[in-house]
């Protein structure tokens, strides 16, 4: 494994103090390389969400070390100062529901992140349209989220996660509301995008349909991670950039 991508070493997270303290993460380890898509699976209460929030710089771990493309972002209590900028520029998020901004059209939903980073509107929109085209939803670029189908919304959300070319994308149950075909389509897209943009993708899931598609899987139970080789099955259908070669 290279120093690129995301790497956590002995990451721990404790909620509360004293007798009521709960150790949600216990020396968790994980390493995901650029272009790789790994699964993070585990039962409810196992620590998946806590790990995801730590990886997303939403909550602070209480111990361990975390690096992103070789850059230390957390080390035993020390953390980078501007977490907003870190999340905006270095981490892409894809949620269970797309959570698109309802008052922005598909293009501006994607372009919002580069705009927040100070990129001029025209350039941000150009990048957004390019990504929408890569995800085969460019024909819906001007549509408001309420006019998009569930699959289209999820692809726009993936485009939003990718638009700032982050080294890592955290996908939180991205296929939960989708049927098998659409779920596999989303995973295929994430794989394509991971390879095209050299992005490490971590997919948190319960979804039995997609677990066999991962080449590597991290199981988490009681806050402890365990790496396992996945089946790495084919995605089973043509989707995503269908008909575009």
């Amino acid at each position: 494994m290279s120093a690129q991508g995301i790497r956590i070493e002995n990451l721990s997270k404790r909620y509360g103090r004293g007798d009521t303290a709960v150790l949600a993460l216990k020396n968790a380890n994980m390493e995901v390389s650029p272009g790789e898509v790994v699964g993070l699976v585990g039962p409810s209460g196992s620590g998946k969400s806590t790990l995801l929030k730590c990886l997303g710089a939403v909550i602070d771990p209480t111990g361990g070390r975390m690096t992103l493309n070789g850059e230390v972002i957390y080390d035993e209590g020390w953390k980078v100062r501007d977490l907003n900028a870190l999340r905006r520029d270095k981490i892409g998020f894809v949620f269970q529901a797309p959570y698109l901004i309802p008052f922005l059209d598909a293009t501006d939903n994607v372009a919002l992140l580069p705009m927040l980073a100070g990129i001029p509107n025209a350039e941000a929109r150009r990048q957004a349209v390019e990504l929408l085209a890569a995800l085969d939803v460019q024909h819906r670029a001007a549509a408001m989220p309420s006019r998009l189908s569930g699959g289209e919304q999820q692809r726009v959300a993936i485009a939003r996660g990718l638009v700032n070319r982050p080294p890592v994308i955290l996908a939180d149950e991205p296929t939960a509301p989708l049927d098998s075909d659409r779920a596999l389509a989303v995973i295929r897209i994430l794989n394509e995008m991971a390879q095209r943009y050299e992005t490490a993708v971590i997919v948190v899931t319960h979804d039995e349909k997609i677990i066999p598609t991962f080449k590597r899987i991290y199981h988490i139970r009681d806050g402890v991670t365990l790496e396992e080789k996945g089946e790495g099955r084919d995605f089973g259908m043509e989707c995503g950039r269908r008909g575009r070669g």
Partner: peptide, 16 residues
């Protein structure tokens, strides 16, 4: 509220 949480998670600053 949900959109605001998403905006903050995506890196929007408080002043935005």
């Amino acid at each position: 509220i949900r959109e605001i949480a998403v905006l903050k998670l995506l890196g929007a600053r408080n002043r935005t």
